[in-house]
Amino acid sequence: MVGLVLRSPAGGGREGDTPLALKNTIRGRDIISCRDLSRGDAELIFSLTEEVVSGAARLENTLAERKIALIFVEPSTRTFQSFYVAARSLGAEVLSIHDPEVSSIAKGETLYDTMKMIEGYGADCIVLRHPARGAARFAAEVASVPVINAGSGSQEHPTQALLDVFTIKSKLGSVDGIRVGMLGDLRFSRTIPSLCYLLSNYSNVKTYFMAPPLLQVRREIELYLSERGVEYRKVVEVDEIREVMPELDVLYVTRIQKERFPDPTEYEKVKGSYVVDARLLSYGRRELGVMHPLPRVDELSPEVDKLPNAWYFEQARNGLPLRKALLYLILGEAG
């Protein structure tokens, strides 16, 4: 067991006694899929995130000698900004492509070449968002430095799932045994697969996939959950949604995108059925937490913002300390 030592020039950090006396299993690793993360990996990240939130761990300037590249080939607000602020507060130099229109990517540069170039500029870690499924895994094969998947098309978004499960844990105290309803576009959402994979590390978690048939989860997710013995149920009928509401601890809402429907009238038919408002929440338990990876459009009524059930702004806030902890664990001297 290697003690995880938090270095802090400001003197606010502390040496690796509990809970951070854990082996750093994250150091130098790629973060491509939540299937690659064990419960122990996730708990290590959560432990340090908690310490960052509470102020017990101050990681400022611990990565002063490092360069972190943020390559975002798709639009992003929260993920880019939180990685940027996290990297800067850790003291790292940031190389970034945020607007592919003004980079060589617009000229048709391949991801392969972009990775080689960024690595050539001395990046110690590459954070990548890309519209193609599998882009992050490919990038990790090309680059010799750790790659963090910040969204690979509709495939995965592992750091979102980490902050989601961290939020659930901090709100409920435990993740084991929870009942999670996932509502909206489950087929094209990249956060849903990552969340399912990460939750599968916890015992007795049950998931309800609440979506019309066209937007139900992809088969590979069902297969993965079945192989790991994770219980799930598909909730297709709108009436069924109200029925299962009382069972839920968490309702995770994703945006339904109109462009996914081949027939616009199909969208018009279902869109109203998947709006989360105070009325729908009245069918659930008083403590039910509502989460959303944001941005939202019409699927989550602003009237929910005022209710204690609204966890989504806290969820979004957790992105910063979590990404700070993650970058530190991958690149820092700990462990």
Binding site: T110, Y112, A132, R137, G153, S154
Partner: peptide
Amino acid sequence: RCPETTCITNVEREPATPRYIVM
């Protein structure tokens, strides 16, 4: 070739060779 059109292995000029695990 991957049946998923948005897979990196289907991106033009990207040197990603399709690879499958048999289940």
